[in-house]
Design a binder for these strands. Structure first.
Ligand code: FES
Ligand code: FES
Lengths: 143, 143
DNA sequence: AGATTAAAAGACCTTTTTATCCTTTTTATA
DNA sequence: TATAAAAAGGATAAAAAGGTCTTTTAATCT
């Protein structure tokens, strides 16, 4: 479904969001331990999210990653879009160069339902809401 | 969503199914032209589908690929499963080693809905039904 | 100022996926 | 039986994804 970059990125940003609700700045090494991801590779992913202004990075002692207040309502769809592009929201399920309801592939109408379901789910899920859920439910970010 | 192998495989098998309803045996070169896919690569994919007994291949002059009557009710889910495995039906959206409702990731319950929607759609769509649809609707397999 | 801490950036390596080429095997039919 | 058609199979190559390592930049604390 998602690339490894995107999986790590989502787990990382969710972890950072959750820690942000507790006012904790978290370092790369903490993140990669807590989400069980390769550290150097995760660094690359976080750089992309930093450049996209989804997370904020702070260098030096006591530095790390955090999410600014007004970014806590970032939707998961934006994170996916930054890391995997938006082919997943617009692409043809059978790989035609573009998806077009006016000359659809045989799977188009069934596929678009699923694709839109995914997009709506991601567009309606903010980092803040996930972080709040995590503080009440028992959910995990590593296994 | 799907790998290139799977996209080509789905398009190929759908094309073969449609031609099968007209009693046409189709050659690799015809298939790769009609679905606009790299011929040699498509050959590899069709070999997998042949070994999985989803399509039948016939060597020699007037040979090619066809689908036997009792295989026309093969579901798209089986084709996807052969070519991409079933991680797409069972895997965690955030990439945890396994998806488990008893210790779910923060996206689990929202993700499972989408994932099951996709699986149900593919499990309920047979080659025959797609082929029949194509004979009434205008749909395409190349662009 | 100098030492230390931590992220950013870029070069590099490895594995997997995608794709091509060429030879071999099978088979229909002239 | 020779020939041509067509799939099968193997070797290889190119591209993309996944991952590591080293150097640079920035912040903090003596
Ligand atoms: S054209 Fe294939 S999904 Fe829309
Ligand atoms: S545990 Fe992540 S989707 Fe089920």
């Amino acid at each position: 479904m998602f690339s490894k970059s995107c999986e790590y990125g989502l787990r990382a940003v969710i972890f950072i969001a959750q820690q942000t609700t507790k006012n904790n700045m978290v370092s790369l090494s903490t993140i990669s331990e807590e989400i069980n991801s390769p550290q150097a590779f995760t660094a690359k992913v976080l750089q992309q999210l930093t450049r996209s202004n989804i997370v904020k990075s702070v260098k030096g002692p006591y530095g790390g990653f955090t999410i600014e207040d007004n970014k806590m309502n970032t939707k998961l769809s934006e994170v996916v879009s930054v890391l995997d592009g938006d082919a997943i929201y617009t692409g043809c399920g059978l790989g035609l160069k573009q998806c077009d309801a006016n000359s659809p592939c045989p799977l188009h109408f069934k596929f678009v339902e699923i694709r839109d379901g995914l997009r709506n789910m991601l567009e309606n899920t903010s980092l803040l809401s996930i972080a709040e859920d995590m503080n009440t439910d028992f959910t995990i970010l590593k296994r």
